[in-house]
Amino acid sequence: MTLRFRRISFAYKHSRPVFEELNLTIDAFPAVILGPNGAGKSTLLSLLCGQLEPESGAVVVDGVSEHTKRAVRTLRRRTGWLPQEVKALPGFTTRQQVAYAGWLKGMGYKNAWANALDALRRVDLEASINRPSGSLSGGQRRRLGVAQALVVNPQYLVLDEPYAGLDPEQRSVMRGTLQDLSDSCQIVTSTHQTDDLEDIYRWVVILESGHVHFSGSTQDFYVYALPETPSSLKAELAYRNVLKERRAGTPA
């Protein structure tokens, strides 16, 4: 699978453009998008899953451009999406909320109801299926969001900061979940966490202020770290060096 952002321009209303003629290709998965706050990571993921539509340019997935409404619809149907904030719907149980997400994605409700149980199993929330979704902890709610994304059996899984607000133990559980899912879906995430890069991701993108500073395999990315750097710090150092070089005007 190949994912291409071709000459994408996008701006929120009454704001300066986030992207101007952005070109980006992702050739391997799972892929991670790194960057400081305000870099455009969430916007890029929203464009990828069809939540936002570019002013010009196109997202091309496996050679198919999502120019048309039909293509956007197909992409949305095939894409599971975890937004930064997962809201509990009042009055819904965990399973009902996940099934509702599947129904909103175009599934028949009977199938969505059956898939919801499977999706909750995959994120280790099986024991909470009858609990009100509003009673879940922060970590459980992130996993609920992943279950919502999984309920449609997605081809692509787009996760916006899946570790946000999680304590180290919850992060570890989420990391395990992502590793398991990487066998069945093509995952693209954004994150500030760099300590698990080597374990999970095969492609790294670094964004800053709407510009791509780096896009390449994880091995190529680690070239930016010194060989003698301890493995736990390698990703962090490589990330800093890429940003430093780009800010100094040196091509990455």
């Binding site: 949305r76 149907r77 894409t79 999406w81 937004p83 994605k105």
Partner: peptide
């Protein structure tokens, strides 16, 4: 669920 950026709705 509909207007918020919740689930790239197609329904």
């Amino acid at each position: 669920s509909v207007v918020g950026r919740w689930a790239a709705v197609i329904r």
